[in-house]
């Protein structure tokens, strides 16, 4: 564990808490569209469920296990909230990204490009590929509405930072422990790349107190 990875994981936690906070806030504003993509959240739940199949078999550390349990539980809880509790605030008309294509693509790629052709490894690889593109429905929704509430942009910023710090962590690990993991690196680079446009607008507008609006 290094500082980059630790802060990255903490940013990931922060993003989830921001999301939960936003959902609590949205509930009090009846009828308002939550502007959170259900599809992205459902994809994240799928990512965690398929990645942590080794939860009971492979013990790394208390930190590792606790985080895994938290990510699985919180992602399922968010999906539950959006699907049942706050269903009225979720507007499927804005959430139109074709998620089945990215799920299909990630599954096909995981079957072809993996480290070992075992059920667990293919599921793990699938989760890596799927995480890389899981934010697309959310970003697509943002493009469609053309604007975002400040709290939504903070959520995306926390997620983007978490991914960016993982890139730094891999460079650090490569030099300090000869750590190499091409599947994770390429998928991670793609994933971080997806946030570039968002980061640009976040830094040039939101942090200067302006509304998040697409040009």
């Amino acid at each position: 564990m290094n500082l980059f990875r630790l802060v990255a994981d903490l940013m990931h936690l922060v993003s989830i808490f921001i999301l939960l906070l936003k959902m609590q806030k949205t509930r009090s504003v009846a009828g308002r569209c939550s502007r959170i993509s259900f599809k992205t959240q459902a994809l994240y739940a799928t990512v965690f469920l398929t990645r942590y199949t080794d939860l009971f078999a492979n013990f790394q550390s208390l930190y590792n296990t606790t985080m895994k349990v938290f990510f699985i539980a919180s992602s399922l809880y968010i999906v539950f909230l959006m699907k049942f509790k706050f269903k009225a605030t979720n507007d499927p008309r804005l959430d139109t990204f074709k998620a089945q294509y990215v799920v299909g693509g990630a599954a096909a790629l995981a079957l072809i490009v993996n480290y070992a052709f075992t059920v667990q490894e293919v599921l793990w690889t699938f989760s890596i590929y799927l995480e890389a593109v899981a934010i697309l429905p959310q970003l697509f929704m943002l493009t469609k509405t053309g604007e975002a509430e400040v709290i939504t942009t903070h959520y995306l910023f926390a997620l983007g930072t978490y991914r960016g710090l993982y890139l730094v962590n891999w460079i650090y690990r490569y030099w300090t422990e000869y750590y190499v993991d091409w599947i994770v690196w390429i998928a991670g680079a793609v994933q971080t790349g997806l946030y570039c446009d968002f980061f640009y607008i976040y830094f040039t507008k939101v942090l200067k107190g302006a509304k998040f609006e697409l040009p």
Partner: peptide, 10 residues
């Protein structure tokens, strides 16, 4: 290629 115990990241 990493060894089989490579999944130490979250």
């Amino acid at each position: 290629q990493p060894d089989q115990n490579h999944h130490d990241e979250l």
